[in-house]
Design a protein around this nucleic acid. Structure first.
Length: 900
DNA sequence: CGTAACTGCAA
DNA sequence: TATTGCAGTTACG
């Protein structure tokens, strides 16, 4: 049986942390609640993360303790708790009572002593003890079974200290931590220590003498004369300080563990309190519990903490050469780099970790190397060598980092990041640490934790030298060892073709697109900025005038109040937090008030300005005058690529005003864009997968697919199809691809559900094999637990087994849509590889620079236009052989607007 | 401060 | 109660 676990929380310390970490929240009655809120969220997180069987919260009481009696100045000069905080203590205790969490309090003892005593008691009972506090003093209680969790910046993350981590961070044992404080003193407790001795000196002394007692007896052995004098002059202080700093672990109190057993909260009381404090998010967390899964935390027991692998530092060219010899003897080289992240085309490398076998890691602090170009030259030989198989986790980064130094990693043989994505594309992250835990039972340093989050988040290069070395080395070590495990899994799931023939080669294409970037006309963008700014301010003025009040138009809440309360327009729809003010609603109100068209126009312009004009202006690379978006290969569940910073896959096109923006994306001097998009790729894929004769026939005859569908649905000849019939049919075709529902189609076409159902039934009657496909794929998904694309890309669909109708229906639509959307993604990925390879092989200068799901954009020198057009057309249309021909439409222009 | 909600842009 | 994404803004707790 697993060990029982107890969580002991330092109440005063934690509520303090919460109070200062959060901005003040005040309820309508003027009650401050940020400390309570922060405390409760931290508490809940710890309970969820660690699933303790026992839990208690310790508090200081007002009564003086033995420390005050012994040392009158104890904690003197400490500022009084502000009333905004002190008024939260009693309410917090009420919350704890409602949670049925025991409060540990005793007059004359500080929370620390209560915690210490309880911790040691539980340790003797063989329990695992977790102490949660914001105060480092508790570190003296650490042992093999006692861990201390200390809050970091903010309230969302905790540092876990066990004896190993304590030694790593402070180089002292838990007991020496007391001596450390005795020597350093502590301002906040007014513990004197030795004046002039700080952390550095104290650690040095403890390394030499072990304890303060030993130090006092052997002061003559202190080498520095000044220091010796200081220590000798403060012996009394040291002794007193140590006594004050020592947490008492044997308070004479009776401990009834039963009191500390975790119990169900008293929900009535709890919700009453939460309502009083206006903790609406917590209320919903505690009420919507029906049907929620009960997630038993499995805990981290049995995990090997990595610290024993062999890490070596490469500090000279000679050492690098020696390492390279090892590489030559090995089949694989795992690599991970960190760069300055200044500029994609002139970037400098900060550090490199490399592994040529499973146990050793070599780390090179690039900043410290004297002859950088010699280092790069040597690396180039290895990285461009066809014999050495390169391994990475997100190797696209390395491809990009080495590009400015004319190093092309030729032989990328494995990327664990992409491997795990194919194994399960639905995961929200694929970090090395987690993979290490799952596949290797190895636990390495947490990157997120090291970097922190939010505003104070660091970049990798800003880490302490030691932290960065450790992080990179461990990640590379784990990456190296992951390869056989992930390979095995890819084999098992028959993903090898997709992996080696598509995804891995694609990485290089994406890296090349990122490095190439796309040129933007800055002047045009700046002009647009001014133009839009004027329009927005004019519209704002009009809106204020028509509303008779100034308010924040961007706030749906305030806008709703103005429209529906003040102007008393009819609210059409509401959201879960208030009135809906979206474009669909406003359109219906357009004629009801002059203000509505102004607001719609404001929304349009404000969106274009903030997201596209300002957004793009802020991200232009000053050196290249281009935009270098990131193309991510592991984000979507269907296999599509995604684009960020900026997202270049959602630049406006449907409305003319927005479409104008495409004019700012220009081909460079002497070049043009060739824009090629697949014609109806998803419906062609559907025709192929379903084998539907009717649909295949439509494509074979080269008919307009929506017109053909309209003629089928409405039972008229093709030449009799009106434009409104065609656009309805188009919506039906969309619906089919998305996994149709009568409700959804009705909503989209603004027709009744019954009418929508008629369209769908009629469609499925005419395209009977499509109907069969839809039914079969859902059955298959239920049976196997997943569906696949043409290239066997897999997506698991647990939703199909849900008892909840909505969730199950969602699963069914995903089952229908994923093979279609995903196979189209498979196809264009092959096309990208084809185009990229052919351009390279033919020695052409044209470069693939963008992909927008069914569209490729190639920046092409004028004298290559014809040849490149042919390559693109071939590359796309021959990407895969289907029952129906793939078709690509090409056009060209000086900018993206013209080329579309 | 960290996150959720709303809105709107693309294929 | 139509698929897949990203981002700007506001508001909550």
């Amino acid at each position: 049986m697993a060990k029982d676990r107890i969580v002991i929380i330092d109440g005063n310390s934690l509520v303090n942390r919460a109070f200062y970490a959060l901005p003040p929240f005040v309820t309508k009655d003027g009650q401050y609640t940020n400390g309570i809120y922060g405390f409760v969220t931290m508490l809940l997180k710890v309970m969820e993360d660690y699933q303790p069987q026992y839990i208690g919260v310790a508090f200081d009481l007002k009564a003086p303790t033995f420390r005050h009696k012994e040392y009158g100045d104890y904690k003197a000069g400490r500022k009084k708790m502000p009333s905004e905080l002190s008024q939260q203590i009693q309410p917090l205790k009420e919350v704890l009572d409602a949670l049925n969490i025991f409060r540990i309090e005793a007059e004359g003892y500080e929370a620390d002593d209560l915690i210490g005593t309880l911790a040691k008691h539980c340790e003797r009972e063989g329990m695992e003890v977790l102490i949660v506090t914001g105060d480092k003093d508790a570190l003296q209680l650490v042992s093999q079974q006692v861990k201390v969790l200390i809050t970091r910046k903010g309230i969302s993350s905790l540092d876990i200290y066990d004896d190993v981590k304590l030694m790593e961070d402070y180089e002292v044992t838990p007991l020496q931590f007391i001596d450390l404080k005795a020597l350093m003193g502590d301002k906040s407790d007014n513990i004197p220590g030795v004046p002039g001795v700080g952390e550095k000196t104290a650690i040095k002394l403890l390394k030499q003498f072990g304890t303060t007692e030993n130090l006092i007896q052997h002061t003559d052995e202190i080498s520095a004369a000044k220091l010796k004098e200081k220590v000798e002059g403060n012996i009394e202080n040291i002794i007193l300080s140590k006594r004050l700093a020592t947490i008492i672990t044997d308070i004479p109190v009776e401990i009834k563990l039963d009191d500390l057993k975790k119990e169900e909260p008293n929900y009535d009381e709890l919700l009453t309190l939460f309502r009083r404090f206006e903790f609406n998010s917590l209320i919903s967390r505690f009420t919507k519990n029906e049907g929620a899964e009960t997630d038993e935390g499995e805990g981290n027991t049995g995990l090997e903490t990595v610290s024993s692998d062999q890490f070596y530092e490469i500090g000279s060219i000679e050492e690098l050469k020696t390492f390279i010899k090892k590489v030559r003897e090995s089949e694989y080289l795992a690599i991970k780099t960190v760069s300055e992240e200044k500029n994609i085309t002139t970037d400098e490398i900060v550090a490199i970790a490399m592994a040529a076998d499973a146990n050793e890691v070599y780390y090179l602090d690039f900043r410290m190397m004297d002859d950088k170009s010699a280092v790069l030259q040597l690396l180039k030989e290895v990285l461009e060598d066809d014999e050495t198989k390169i391994i990475g986790h997100d190797i696209k980064k390395e491809l990009v980092h080495f590009a400015p130094h004319q190093i092309e990693i030729r032989n990328v043989s494995f990327d664990t990041f992409i491997g795990e994505y194919l194994i399960d594309p639905a995961k929200s992250s694929y970090n090395v640490k987690e993979l290490g835990v799952v596949y290797l039972n190895k636990n390495i340093v947490d990157e997120e934790e090291l970097l922190g989050k939010g505003k104070s988040r660091k970049t990798l290069k800003e880490l302490e030298k030691e932290d960065l070395r450790k992080l990179l080395s461990q990640q590379v070590n784990v990456t190296f060892n992951l390869v056989p495990r992930i390979k095995e899994k890819l084999h098992e799931l028959e993903l090898e073709d997709l992996y080696y023939k598509v995804e891995l080669p694609l990485t290089e294409v994406l890296a090349s697109m990122e490095v190439a970037g796309i040129k933007v006309d800055q002047h045009m963008l700046k002009d647009l900025e001014i133009q839009f700014r004027d329009m927005v301010s004019q519209l704002t003025e009009d809106i204020y005038r028509l509303a008779g009040v100034e308010f924040n138009i961007n706030s749906p809440k305030q806008l709703g109040e103005v429209l529906f309360d003040k102007l008393e327009l009819p609210p059409i729809k509401k959201t879960k937090t208030g009135y809906s003010t979206n474009a669909e609603v406003l359109e219906k109100l357009r004629e009801k008030h002059e203000i509505i068209p102004k607001i719609l126009e404001y929304r349009t312009i404000a969106k274009l300005k903030s997201t596209y004009v300002d957004g793009l202006l802020g991200i232009i690379n000053p050196v290249t005058e281009r935009i270098h978006s990131s193309f991510n290969q592991t984000v979507t569940t269907t296999g599509r690529i995604s684009s960020t910073e900026p997202n270049l896959q959602n630049i406006p096109v449907r409305l003319e005003l927005g479409r104008q923006l495409r004019k700012v994306f220009v081909a460079k001097e002497g070049h043009k864009f060739i824009d090629a998009d697949y014609s109806q790729i998803e419906l062609r894929v559907l025709a192929h997968i379903s084998g539907d004769e009717n649909l295949l026939d439509a494509f074979e005859k080269g008919q307009d697919i929506h017109t053909r569908t309209a003629s089928e649905i409405f039972g008229v000849e093709v030449h009799e199809v009106t434009s409104s019939m065609r656009s309805s049919a188009k919506a039906v075709n969309f619906g089919i691809v998305y996994g149709i529902s009568d409700f959804g189609l009705g909503e989209n076409l603004k027709i009744s559900r019954a009418q929508a159902k008629k369209y769908i039934d009629r469609y499925l009657e005419k395209y009977s094999s499509v109907k069969a496909y839809m039914e079969n794929i859902v059955q298959e998904g239920k049976h196997k637990g997943y569906v696949v694309t043409l290239l066997n890309r897999r997506r698991y669909l647990p939703e199909l087994l849900s008892k909840n109708f909505n969730i199950r229906s969602f699963g069914e639509r995903m089952a229908m849509n994923t093979p279609i959307q995903g196979s189209a993604a498979d196809i264009i990925k092959i096309a990208m590889i084809n185009v990229h390879r052919m351009l390279k092989e033919e020695g052409l200068k044209a470069k693939l620079i963008l992909q927008v799901h069914d569209e490729l954009i190639v920046e092409t020198p004028l004298d290559e236009m014809e040849k490149v057009s042919q390559i693109i057309e071939m590359g796309m249309e021959n990407a895969m052989k289907l029952k129906v021909q793939l078709k690509a439409d090409l056009s060209q222009g000086d900018n993206w607007y013209e080329a579309k």
